[in-house]
């Protein structure tokens, strides 16, 4: 939230701000050292494509966490909107239109979260824990527990290109991630909406006294989170060429991890969107790197957890 650039150069400040970047560079260095093929352009594009789904969800989550909230329901929203979009395509609705309807449904589900939290005064953790279960259950009801796929999906150019296509040689999901980042960056750092987001997390009471409509902003933020989850859902459905009823389980954890690794404070009011992008890249590099090195996925989880703990401890130390 810079209003003016400070002219003084502060070394500690500089390192502090670069913390996640340094971690990412170190990680890339380490993986490359162990396996040179990591830096192959194809592997990098592959990595970015893997990252894109998590990054999209984590961008939305950043807004939520900046208000000192949390959204556990993103994985379920992803699955529900993915499934309903697939069903709409199979029912003959044009995939582009089905995509928009899916995003609209994601927005509504997120809005429901926001309303329970804003008007009901429910703790975000509990509210979204409950809707996580509800939306997941609804997905199973909708799909009868079976994957959804069909010729109309396979044969649609639009549907296929989103998850698997390229734009100027760059995989489409990466393009979507980049565009989303730019739009949300402007929203968070250049627009009044972003300032209000920070204000709610910084001190909700003071924000309210200052005339900020905190209920409205809160609802919009959870709506945004729902939108981001549903976009990620469409990408995932396209990549897999089918909607899985148990898609997105534990995705909320990866998104929260990306936000936290990007040094956004869980108590709200502090953090930046670019940090989340780097956080998502750190997680992506870990996953990709460990795959390259042939580390079993069982161990990968342990390593990921340890990295998060180390990151948080370093952050604590810096704050003290």
């Amino acid at each position: 939230m810079n209003n003016a650039k400070s002219k003084q150069f502060n070394v500690m400040d500089f390192i502090g701000k670069l913390g996640p970047v340094l971690a990412l560079v170190f990680l890339i260095f380490l993986v490359t050292l162990l396996n040179h093929s990591f830096l192959d352009i194809n592997n990098i594009l592959n990595l970015l494509r893997q990252v894109s789904t998590n990054a999209l969800i984590a961008f939305g989550m950043t807004f939520v966490i900046l208000t000192a909230g949390i959204d556990l329901s993103v994985g379920s929203i992803l699955a529900f909107t993915g499934a309903i979009t697939a069903q709409m395509i199979i029912a003959g609705i044009h995939p582009a239109f089905a995509f928009l309807l899916g995003v609209l449904i994601g927005a509504i589900l997120g809005g429901i979260n926001g309303m329970i939290i804003a008007y009901g005064g429910a703790a975000p953790f509990i509210a979204t824990l409950a809707t996580m279960t509800i939306f997941r259950g609804a997905t199973y009801v909708l799909t009868d527990g079976n994957p959804i796929t069909g010729a109309k999906m396979t044969n649609s150019f639009f549907f296929q290109v989103v998850g698997r296509g390229y734009f100027l040689g760059i995989p489409f999901p990466i393009v979507i991630m980049a565009v989303a980042f730019i739009i949300l960056y402007v929203l968070l750092h250049k627009m009044a909406f972003g300032r209000k987001t920070y204000a709610i997390g910084g001190n909700a009471k003071a924000a309210f006294v200052s005339g900020i409509k905190i209920n409205k902003i809160t609802i919009l933020i959870y709506t945004l989170s729902g939108i981001m989850a549903s976009i990620a859902g469409f990408i995932l459905t396209s990549r897999l060429n089918s909607a899985q009823p148990d898609a997105g389980i534990t995705y909320e954890m990866d998104a929260i991890a990306a936000v936290v690794l990007g040094e956004t404070s869980l108590t709200g009011g502090k953090g930046r969107l670019v940090g989340t992008l780097i956080g998502a890249l750190i997680i992506g590099t870990l996953n990709n790197g460990m795959n390259l090195l042939g580390i079993s996925s069982f161990y990968q989880q342990i390593v990921k957890g340890i990295v998060i703990i180390i990151a948080v401890l370093i952050d604590r130390k810096k704050a003290a």
Binding site: N3, R195, Y198, G202, N203, S210, G211
Partner: peptide, 20 residues
Amino acid sequence: DEGLMLDATIADNIDLASLA
């Protein structure tokens, strides 16, 4: 309690009620 965002900058506090 109700006046300031203590961890935010002076600027962010001052313009909060005048953003529009």
